[in-house]
Computed example of a mutant assay.
Amino acid sequence: MESIRWVLAVADVDFEEVFLTSRDQYLKLLDGGALKFQQVPLVEIDGMKLVQTRAILHYIAEKYNLMGKNLKEKAMINMYAEGTMDLMEMIMILPFTPDPKSKLENIEQKALTRYLPVFEEALKGSMHLVGGSQSYADVLLFECTLMLEEKFPDILKDFTCIKTFQGKMSSLDTVKKFMAPGGKRKPQPNEAYVKNAMQVLGFA
């Protein structure tokens, strides 16, 4: 859900969160038909109950003008967004991995050789990945760079365009509000979070 929070926050959309803390809450949603494909996150918006993170992100991006000005820009934005999500997903599964340390070297190597050079090139001469205006791909890239630095503090040292982009994103009022103490940004999952998630979803 964190990427969805990020995009909503940057779009300056106020939202209410409901956290599942018990298996019964999940089963109630399931029995009520709210959880298509039997999964979360679930976002209720404009009379719809949406699951599938990418579908939710696309809808929010379209609704709040974060999806580009034409079909070609949308395709490029989605391409960069998918790249960031591929990389973030490698990091997001670490708390649920029995031996996460063994995965870190692979993630770092892929970030340095496969992903970050692409974003660095795209940001040369621009503060945005596509079209000279902010898109949800920019938001996801900013989230992704923060996640990477939490694992590998010096990973961006040779990517000057990304660092400049990161500084620009950090200066946005909506981002400052989201990241401020007491804001809606969530920390990395800890053992208690993982245990609760596994219980709620029926894996423990």
Results as ranks from 00 to 15, higher is better:
residue 2 E to W: 08
residue 3 S to I: 05
residue 4 I to M: 09
residue 9 A to H: 08
residue 10 V to F: 14
residue 11 A to S: 00
residue 12 D to Q: 09
residue 13 V to Q: 15
residue 15 F to K: 03
residue 16 E to W: 07
residue 22 S to D: 12
residue 23 R to P: 01
residue 35 L to N: 00
residue 37 F to G: 06
residue 38 Q to N: 10
residue 39 Q to M: 14
residue 40 V to A: 02
residue 42 L to F: 09
residue 44 E to D: 00
residue 51 V to M: 14
residue 59 Y to E: 09
residue 69 K to L: 10
residue 74 K to W: 13
residue 74 K to G: 05
residue 74 K to A: 07
residue 74 K to Y: 11
residue 79 M to Q: 13
residue 82 E to C: 08
residue 87 L to A: 04
residue 97 T to M: 11
residue 99 D to Y: 15
residue 101 K to T: 08
residue 103 K to E: 14
residue 103 K to P: 08
residue 104 L to Q: 14
residue 105 E to Q: 14
residue 108 E to P: 01
residue 113 T to I: 15
residue 114 R to N: 13
residue 120 E to D: 01
residue 122 A to N: 05
residue 128 H to F: 10
residue 130 V to I: 14
residue 133 S to E: 15
residue 137 A to S: 10
residue 138 D to C: 02
residue 139 V to S: 01
residue 141 L to P: 01
residue 142 F to Y: 15
residue 144 C to G: 03
residue 148 L to V: 06
residue 154 D to L: 11
residue 157 K to H: 10
residue 157 K to G: 06
residue 158 D to Y: 07
residue 160 T to K: 15
residue 160 T to Q: 15
residue 162 I to H: 11
residue 176 K to C: 05
residue 180 A to V: 00
residue 180 A to Q: 12
residue 184 K to T: 00
residue 186 K to C: 11
residue 190 N to H: 04
residue 191 E to L: 10
residue 194 V to Q: 08
residue 197 A to L: 10
residue 198 M to C: 03
residue 203 F to P: 02
